[in-house]
Design a binder for these strands. Structure first.
Length: 418
RNA sequence: CGGGGUGUAGCGCAGUUGGUAGCGCGUACGGCUGGGGACCGUGAGGUCGCAGGUUCAAGUCCUGUCACCCCGACCA
């Protein structure tokens, strides 16, 4: 993308109404726009980051048999009444509204009920199981107070996968598989080193569950980490019973603050009971479907990644999620420089390498500042100097020093045939 | 939902004892400059959050209301 064409712009000042570093930087760099507290719009560069995160999750969900769907945000109350969750006393974050005729509707805060109900159309025999539908959906939760920028919104994106299994054994095998897939997701997002599978409370679903917690000073959860076993225990279930069951002593654990980036729950037959989701077993008897749910918040991850890697110059995106791999800073508009920069841009673009091409008529300092603020992994300068030497100047976002490289070397290093 | 704070140009802000609104950034045009957000000049840009009240006169005082931020409680 040519920056002369991009409609967003960076700003020097940080927004006054944000204290969360992730929101400040993302707004300053033009990645997002704040619509209201806890509600953010994604602008071109921000949408690219979000899409990259979504795609990584999609890859891994597909790899374990997930089938992508898209459920509705508008929900009738019937299915929720069946499980007892329509009541504001049970679920206190509902946004509710109604049709012209007066029928009550809710903006879905999650999707267990409607999906379970939907699956009744397709699950009638053991031959129909297991099934692993998942979606990326906007969830609406009327939080009393929203904060931390993208990390706790009233409207946010969530990947939720639901497993429908014949029995507990089949469920547990998938539960483990999904857990492994989550590890891959966080590795690919660059958070693997600081993300721990965490033993946690099952909330309204079951006694225990697992969360994936990423160590971060802006986190809202307290966890106890066991480095050797690469696992952790959430403070809410930090007790002797849990410690004993995991074969761990308190002395081996270190207290940390963390952000919940994923969770996996065993739902068992809670929803199949409530909504009568049954199947005919091999012997002809009617059995309840055994369920699980598995969530990851891509928008929260975007905020966390922004927050975690940022430095005093701005955002620093891991390569896998960056809106572009390369930032071409073209200094000046001498014909030879323009030609050299255009050639580089065209070669990379043709090869599918994401590029932000700064072809704007502004001073070099501004281009460097924007390249840093936007957090693009590799910056390549094309100028009179580089053209005269028949080279390109390359600098990685985190490095101080630059390096002169030939066009071929640059292309090869980016996986493009020279 | 309790406590505290803030709403003035696209963004960041100033505005004294009430007297009819200003600065920086950005933006338009011209000049100059050309490797870390330069500089000079000339412009455009406002329902002072909203509603009511007091007053000859309200950005400024009073009442109500909406929104935003922080701390707490709650929460993927």
């Amino acid at each position: 993308m040519r920056l002369s064409q991009l409609f967003t712009r960076t700003t020097r000042d940080t927004p006054a109404d944000e204290t969360a570093r992730n929101a400040q930087l993302l707004i300053q760099a033009g990645f997002i726009h704040k619509e209201m507290a806890g509600v953010y719009a994604y602008l071109p560069l921000g949408k690219m980051v979000l899409d990259n995160i979504v795609q990584i999750i999609r890859d891994e969900m597909n790899a374990i048999g997930g089938q992508e769907i898209s459920l509705t945000a508008l929900q009738g109350k019937d299915v929720w009444e069946a499980s007892g969750r329509w009541s504001d006393e049970v679920v206190d974050v509902w946004f509710k509204t109604e049709l012209n005729g007066g029928s009550q509707l809710g903006l879905a805060p999650t999707h267990e009920e409607p999906l379970t109900n939907l699956m009744k159309r397709f699950i009638s025999s053991y031959k129909d199981l297991p099934a692993y539908p998942y979606q990326f959906q906007t969830k609406f939760r009327n939080e009393l107070r929203s904060k931390s920028g993208l990390m706790r919104g009233r409207e946010f994106l969530m990947k939720d996968l639901y497993s429908f299994s014949k029995d507990q054994a089949e469920h547990e095998a998938f539960y483990e598989k999904c857990s492994e897939a989550y590890v891959k997701v966080f590795d690919r997002l660059g958070l693997g080193d600081i993300t721990y599978k965490t033993f946690a409370s099952g909330g309204s679903f079951s006694k225990y569950s697992h969360e994936f917690q990423t160590i971060s000073p802006v986190g809202e959860d307290t966890i106890y980490v066991h480095e050797g076993k690469k696992l952790a225990i959430n403070q809410e279930v930090y007790n002797d019973e849990v410690l004993a069951s995991l074969g761990i002593t308190k002395e081996e654990l270190v207290e940390k603050t963390a952000v919940e980036v994923g969770n996996i729950f065993t739902l068992a037959t809670k929803y199949s009971d409530a909504l009568d989701l049954n199947y005919a077993a091999e012997d002809g008897s009617s059995e309840k479907v055994f369920m699980g749910s598995y969530g990851i918040g891509p928008s929260r991850l975007m905020g966390l990644i922004a927050e975690h890697f940022a430095d005093d110059k701005g955002l620093v995106w891991p390569e896998n999620v960056a809106p572009a791999k390369v930032y071409i800073a073209r200094l000046g508009d001498n014909p030879d420089v323009v030609t050299a920069a255009d050639v580089l841009y065209d070669r990379l673009t043709a090869a599918g390498v994401g590029v932000l091409y700064d072809d704007r008529a502004i001073r070099p300092g501004e281009k460097f500042a924007d390249a840093d603020l936007m957090g693009i992994p590799k910056r390549i300068v094309v100028s009179d100097k580089t053209v005269a030497a028949n080279t390109l100047e390359v600098k990685n976002r985190q490095d101080e020093n630059t390096e002169m490289q030939s066009l071929d070397t640059v292309l090869t290093s980016l996986g493009v045939a020279a």
